[in-house]
Amino acid sequence: MEQLKMQVPTGAWDYLPIECAAKRKVEDKIRNSFLKSGYSEIETPSFEYYEVFMHDSVPYVQENMMKFFDQKGRILALRPDLTGPIARAAATKLLARQDILRLCYIQNAFGFFNRGIAGKTEFTQAGVELIGKKGADADAEVIALAIGTLRQIGLEGFKIELGQVAYFKGLIEGSGLDEEQTERIRSLVDAKNNVELEYELSRLNIENTKKKALLELGGLFGGREALAQAETLAKSEECRAAVENIREVYDILCDFGYEEYLSIDFGILNNFNYYSGIIFRGISDGIGMPILSGGRYDDLLREFGTDAPATGFAMGVKELLIVLECQGKLAAQREKSIVVRAGKKLLRQAFSYVQELRAQGKRVILELNGSTYDPALFEIRDFAEGEMK
Rank of each mutant, 00 (worst) to 15 (best):
C326H: 07
I287Y: 14
S352G: 14
T311R: 05
S293P: 00
E335Q: 14
L269N: 05
E237M: 06
E248Y: 11
D374E: 14
E260T: 13
G282I: 02
Y353D: 05
Y353Q: 10
D255Q: 13
F313M: 01
Q355Y: 08
G316W: 06
A241Y: 04
K318Y: 12
L357E: 02
K329D: 02
E237Y: 05
E260M: 05
R240M: 11
P290W: 10
G328H: 02
L262H: 04
A308I: 03
L347P: 01
I252S: 07
A331P: 02
I287P: 12
N273M: 07
G267T: 01
K344Q: 14
L253G: 13
P290K: 06
D298V: 08
G288F: 00
K362Y: 07
A314C: 01
G295H: 01
K329Q: 12
Y373L: 04
L301W: 08
G361L: 11
K362G: 04
E259C: 06
A242R: 03
I365K: 13
E303Y: 12
F313L: 07
E356I: 07
F272I: 06
Q360E: 13
L346C: 15
L321R: 11
N270A: 13
R334H: 03
A314K: 07
G361P: 04
A350R: 08
I279P: 11
K344D: 13
G282C: 03
Y274D: 12
P290Y: 02
A242V: 04
K362W: 08
L346N: 15
E260Q: 15
G312D: 03
S293A: 11
M315V: 07
G316I: 01
G328F: 06
A331V: 12
G305H: 14
F351R: 15
L347E: 10
D307K: 14
A241P: 06
F313K: 09
R363S: 14
L269A: 08
